[in-house]
Design a protein around this nucleic acid. Structure first.
Length: 255
DNA sequence: AAGAGTCCCAACCGCTCGTGT
DNA sequence: CACACGAGCGGTTGGGACTCT
């Protein structure tokens, strides 16, 4: 359409945000909301474009963001949701409370994709063996954010089906015992705390290519019978059972 | 200890979509 | 109906952090 770029770069700051900018943005959003991102930087006195402010808020400053390592359960959920939804990161993020599309996208591209591809085993092993860097950074970031945010970050409860927990418990155990340092660093994100509420599952299972609200292309049907299987047959059976119990493709409720 | 290589993530870019006029 | 505009989304990348040799 040939529109002008969102921000005339003249005089607008780019690059990493400073703590002061974060503070200003958080204070402004808390006070006035963010009904108009384009006007927000001016009103708040920030030398940033609205787009940049929006991104910073959504991906970093929002009080309900859950920071820290992705648990094994979350990673599995991403994999399953990606099978259902494809690269619709925002849709996937909507089903993982506290996680952002950007974060999920990053996790997918950095290790989940590798893990799924056959050659990913070694990589995955390394990923579980050496998440120190991530944990360390996450801790620092969490401290920084909590210093900036006016509200305490809220831990969004997420309940995981017991059956799923049982099928992945071994993996979870491996994950959680990777190293004691990691353990310390990820204390606040243990699998016990990672509980998805029931609506998560009903919503997830409601995702169907035929559902008009699902946004699924009909060319990308639910592939329960194709390659790129989950980690185990048990997993596959579990998802298949759930899917069938939910009424298959026909009787799925709309979200 | 230091340099090279690799990984990860925050942020940017450009496109599409939805809405108002 | 056509256009303009803002918001949102997904792909990409620069550079810092970390590991390896």
């Amino acid at each position: 359409m040939g529109r002008a770029p969102c921000c005339e770069k003249m005089g607008l700051k780019r690059g990493p945000w400073t703590a002061e900018e974060d503070r200003i943005l958080v204070a402004h959003v808390e006070r006035h909301g963010h009904s108009n991102w384009r006007a927000l930087p001016k009103q708040a006195g920030l030398l940033r474009c609205g787009k940049s402010c929006r991104l910073r808020w959504i991906n970093y400053l929002r009080p309900d963001i859950k920071r820290g390592n992705f648990t094994r359960e979350e990673e599995d959920a991403i994999i399953h949701l990606h099978e259902l939804l494809g690269n619709r990161w925002s849709a996937i993020a909507a089903r993982l409370p506290g996680r952002t599309d950007n974060e999920i996208k990053n996790v997918w591209h950095t290790h989940l994709k590798k893990r799924l591809s056959g050659a990913g085993q070694a990589q995955a092993q390394r990923a579980t063996a050496a998440p120190k860097r991530k944990a360390k950074k996450a801790k620092a970031v969490a401290a920084e954010v909590s210093a900036v945010a006016l509200d305490e970050p809220t831990t969004v409860p997420v309940s995981w089906p017991e059956q799923s927990l049982s099928t992945t418990s071994a993996a979870t155990e491996d994950y959680s015992t990777a190293s004691s340092a990691d353990q310390n660093a990820t204390d606040s994100f243990t699998s016990e705390e990672f509980q998805i509420d029931d609506s998560f599952w009903s919503e997830t299972l409601a995702m169907t290519p035929d559902s008009p609200d699902s946004g699924m292309e009909s060319a990308e049907p639910l592939r329960m019978d194709t390659a790129s299987p989950p980690s185990t047959n048990d997993d596959m059976d579990f998802w298949l059972k759930l899917f069938i119990q939910a009424g298959g493709m026909q009787n799925l409720p709309q979200i």
